[in-house]
Amino acid sequence: MIKYVLLTMCAIPAVAFAQSSVTLYGIIDTSLETANTGANRVERMASGKVVASRWGLYGTEDIGGGTKILFKLENGFNSASGAMSSSGVLFNRESWVGLANERYGSMKFGVQYTPFHTARVKYGPGVLGDGMSWGIAMTDFVFGPTVRPNNSVRYDSPMMAGFTFRAMYARGANGATGSPGTLGDIRSFGFEYANGPLLIEGAYLDQVGTTATTITSSTPTTRGNFSLLTVAYDLGFMNPRAEFEMHRGGPNVKTSYAAGYVTPKHNIYELDDLIPVGLGLITLSVGHYQMLGYSSGSATGYHVRYDYPLSKGTGVYAGAGMVRNGSSASFTVGDASAGGLSVAAGRTATSVAFGMVHRF
């Protein structure tokens, strides 16, 4: 009898495991960089230039009827030092659980990317990096609070006649005491249309913010909004893309204030071209940030990068970038980990780097 019970208990987890899977994965991106901030030159080892160094767990459980339970836990780290990207936060990149159905799409809850950011990165260097990385001009001008909000609910539809639709609502402060109840709240919507070589991405996002530097529960708030349109066409011998982003609504501040979720009203224009060369890929990118109302806050970025795969999981890259700032602008050459060196207003920033990416 005891033997029968023990065999039965051993069989239960075996059945559950057969219906589930958990994958451990990771990316390590380490580079050597020489950069000029306009005031001095810096030589350094850097992490996460073209793709943020990270490790994570991704799991699924098939519960039948075409429905699966999903989860993802992802931690970012600095591959040059071993430090976590966010002190005291283990899963600082993504942390969500949800469900997906073949007919109805997916719904996820937790820390995840906005549909607005998904539209930004959908088209990008496909050999080694992500769509927002060192070598892409838009990366120089990204406003961080629009990327991965906490306390979010996101829906992704299945593809229908080439269209995919996305929607999100996120609670920024999430009812925390000492700040307005809606501070940081996000509403975001997006769509993708894919038809052969043509790809069109569109997205909208609005966010509750404040210009107050001292925040209390009675601090007045405002709402700014972002819109984005990207068109890409694969010609085979090259992949051109045009992208336009604008921010409107709220007060026209002169500088971004991430803690208050506010940023200047602006337009961003970008032209990219991905050119296959043998197994490798050349990326050419130019972008212009136009600050509305304050022309001295505008900037232009120029980038070139070459990626070459050494194997299925490993590749190398090399390239250069430059950002020319207006007299009041202080943008730097950005990367996938948002780790660009600080630049004083009005200075020109440059970056030359060589690195390796390994995926496991």
Results as ranks from 00 to 15, higher is better:
130 D>E: 13
100 A>F: 04
118 T>I: 08
137 A>M: 03
136 I>Q: 05
128 L>S: 03
100 A>G: 06
118 T>W: 11
140 D>G: 07
96 W>Q: 02
141 F>H: 06
96 W>R: 07
130 D>S: 10
117 H>S: 11
128 L>E: 09
118 T>M: 08
112 Q>S: 01
137 A>Y: 04
138 M>P: 03
107 M>D: 00
130 D>T: 15
112 Q>L: 14
132 M>N: 06
105 G>N: 02
132 M>G: 01
127 V>N: 07
100 A>T: 15
133 S>W: 04
105 G>M: 01
105 G>A: 07
126 G>E: 13
99 L>N: 01
119 A>V: 03
138 M>G: 05
117 H>G: 09
113 Y>W: 14
125 P>H: 02
106 S>A: 12
142 V>Y: 10
135 G>V: 13
119 A>S: 14
101 N>P: 06
134 W>M: 12
136 I>K: 04
141 F>S: 08
119 A>D: 02
117 H>N: 12
103 R>L: 13
97 V>C: 01
122 K>A: 15
104 Y>K: 00
104 Y>L: 13
130 D>Y: 00
133 S>A: 15
122 K>M: 10
135 G>P: 07
130 D>C: 08
111 V>P: 00
140 D>R: 11
141 F>N: 06
122 K>Y: 11
107 M>Q: 02
117 H>D: 12
140 D>C: 09
105 G>H: 01
125 P>V: 08
125 P>Q: 11
115 P>A: 09
133 S>P: 01
105 G>Y: 09
108 K>V: 14
135 G>W: 06
134 W>R: 08
111 V>L: 14
131 G>C: 05
115 P>K: 03
98 G>N: 11
133 S>R: 09
116 F>P: 05
102 E>R: 06
106 S>G: 11
104 Y>N: 03
96 W>N: 07
114 T>Q: 03
112 Q>G: 06
104 Y>F: 14
110 G>F: 08
104 Y>S: 08
122 K>N: 10
121 V>G: 12
116 F>S: 05
120 R>Q: 15
120 R>A: 03
138 M>D: 04
115 P>C: 15
106 S>Y: 11
115 P>D: 05
103 R>H: 12
102 E>K: 13
123 Y>H: 11
142 V>P: 00
118 T>Q: 11
121 V>Q: 03
110 G>K: 14
141 F>K: 05
104 Y>C: 00
128 L>T: 05
111 V>Q: 11
100 A>E: 09
126 G>L: 02
119 A>Q: 10
121 V>K: 04
104 Y>E: 03
100 A>P: 01
107 M>Y: 00
99 L>Y: 14
102 E>C: 01
134 W>N: 13
108 K>A: 10
125 P>W: 07
116 F>Q: 04
142 V>W: 13
99 L>C: 04
97 V>L: 15
112 Q>T: 06
104 Y>I: 01
136 I>C: 02
137 A>V: 08
139 T>I: 08
117 H>T: 12
136 I>R: 02
113 Y>S: 11
129 G>L: 04
108 K>F: 12
119 A>E: 01
102 E>H: 09
